[in-house]
């Protein structure tokens, strides 16, 4: 398949990438744009480590062919807290929400998405809202605390 130019707005900056349209958005971010904060855990949309916001919606970037993201606004972990720590990042630090850190960028994107939908989430909404992001270290309890603390801090 021939390459073509795909245009995206990533973390507020217009980007033009010469790539196969079937390339995974994850690879374009990590390899073409050197935004390696987005992680690959499974490559099949199960673990959520590659979560990014696409036009404000949470997606697994390993499942998105970049051709489908033509013209889209993408927000990755590098776009969060560009002017100092975002409240969600601060809460993940203080509550112990990050251990090995490999799920953390995706988990933070999922939390930002969750808090946009439910600014004061109940515990059950947090459990359901983060169920697409796997963490093997924490048993999720510290992550729940981090989400609750970030919610209290407000946007």
């Amino acid at each position: 398949m021939p390459k073509r130019t795909v245009s995206l707005v990533v973390n507020g900056r217009p980007q033009h990438v010469e790539t196969h349209p079937m390339s995974r958005l994850l690879d374009v971010l990590r390899e073409d744009l050197s935004l390696t904060g987005t992680k690959e855990g499974c490559g099949e949309g199960e673990c959520g480590a590659c979560s990014v916001l696409l036009n404000g919606q949470l997606v697994n970037s390993c499942l998105v062919p970049v051709g489908q993201a033509e013209g889209a606004r993408i927000c990755t972990i590098e776009g969060v807290g560009q002017h100092g720590l975002h409240p969600v990042q601060a809460a993940f630090i203080s509550e112990g929400g990050a251990q090995c850190g490999i799920c953390t960028p995706g988990m933070i994107m999922a939390t930002i998405d969750l808090l946009a939908r439910y600014p004061e989430p109940a515990l059950e909404q947090i459990r359901e809202g983060l169920a697409g992001n796997l963490c093997r270290c924490t048993g999720y309890m510290r992550i729940f605390s981090a989400v609750q603390k970030a919610a209290q801090a407000g946007p």
Partner: peptide
């Protein structure tokens, strides 16, 4: 005491460097 994890800043910002990075 619950001092902040040493490498927490780079983990929450996505700048921690794993081998695939």
């Amino acid at each position: 005491t619950a001092v902040p994890r040493k490498e927490a800043g780079r983990k929450v910002s996505g700048t921690a460097e794993y081998v695939d990075d």
